[in-house]
């Protein structure tokens, strides 16, 4: 009697030698990618449904590491969250990303979790990546190298596409970036709501504004606002109302704790913006 493929004892792991080979294997066998597999294996356990094959990415060292290019950072998709959290250069030049990385899980799981895995699960890093105008470098199912904004990737994710790196332009001088995680407990729990902001002030004028949210049950997205669309010159109360209205328009009607997320989210975003207002 053969055992039905329900548990991990029946899963074959495939070991590609390159990113392109990984894609080819994934397509040929219709097999998922696994990196740290911290979230994936738990969802497979829950449904008692492990795949017949999975493509292991951990051997692909070219996908690991953070590189500073001329005017951008290139972060390998398999860079661990621990590496992101502990990278001192990143902490100095891209503190938003450092902070976001530290907010994920706890030290142990950060060793296993990767940048790509976090994106795949629409995790804690997403709002920060969105406000930083992140670009996704990936290989499509036909083996072609592609690049597109993260916002576009989110709209039409390609399951067999393999993210190889993220490219993040260095924020302009005068940029203020902030993020905050709203959760039930001080540490090590899924986000109810992450909010991130990037403000670029030049000569006393707000030239660029990005606000983004995401959460455990909330698709990450940039808020539909601009420096001109928000009443930044008015009182905090008015700004708060406008932010509440924006969140109200974005958050799905059925989402859990909706009123709380709007209320707290607006306050957090207001706080991120208002210290810089006149």
């Amino acid at each position: 009697m053969t055992i039905a493929v329900t548990d991990r004892t029946q899963t074959h792991i495939l070991f590609p030698q390159s990113a392109f080979e990984a894609v080819a294997l994934a397509v040929r066998h219709q097999a998922p990618y696994i990196a740290g597999a911290t979230a994936l294996q738990l969802s497979w356990n829950k449904t008692a449904n492990w795949p017949t094959q999975a493509v292991a990415l951990s051997g692909l060292s070219e996908l690991i590491g953070c590189k500073r290019l001329a005017s951008s950072w290139q972060l390998g998709a398999l860079t661990s969250l621990a590496e992101l959290a502990n990278n001192s250069a990143l902490a100095e030049y891209m503190p938003l990303l450092s902070q976001a990385a530290v907010s994920v899980g706890a030290a142990g799981v950060r060793q296993l979790g990767t940048l790509a895995g976090n994106i795949g699960f629409a995790g804690d890093l997403m709002p920060s990546l969105l406000v930083l105008d992140t670009q996704v470098l990936w290989i499509d199912q036909h083996g072609r190298s592609q690049q597109q904004p993260l916002t576009q990737w989110l709209e039409a994710p390609q399951p067999q596409g393999l993210i190889t790196a993220l490219q993040i332009p260095v924020p302009l001088a005068g940029s203020i970036t902030r993020m905050e995680k709203l959760a039930s407990r001080s540490a090590f729990n899924p986000p109810l709501l992450n909010v991130a902001s990037l403000q670029c002030w030049q000569e006393g004028q707000l030239q660029k504004l990005r606000l983004a949210i995401g959460g455990n049950a909330i698709q990450p997205s940039l808020l539909p606002i601009s420096p001109h669309s928000l009443p930044l010159q008015d009182s905090r109360r008015v700004l708060n109302s406008a932010l509440r209205a924006t969140l109200d328009s974005i958050l799905p009607l059925g989402c859990a704790q909706r009123d709380y997320l709007i209320s707290a989210g607006a306050k957090l975003l207001c706080d991120q913006l208002s210290p810089n207002l006149s």
Binding site: S184, R185, S186, A187, F188, N189, P190
Partner: peptide, 11 residues
């Protein structure tokens, strides 16, 4: 324990 939260050292 992902959804049933007990205090951690941080709390």
């Amino acid at each position: 324990l992902d959804a049933y939260l007990i205090p951690t050292l941080a709390d």
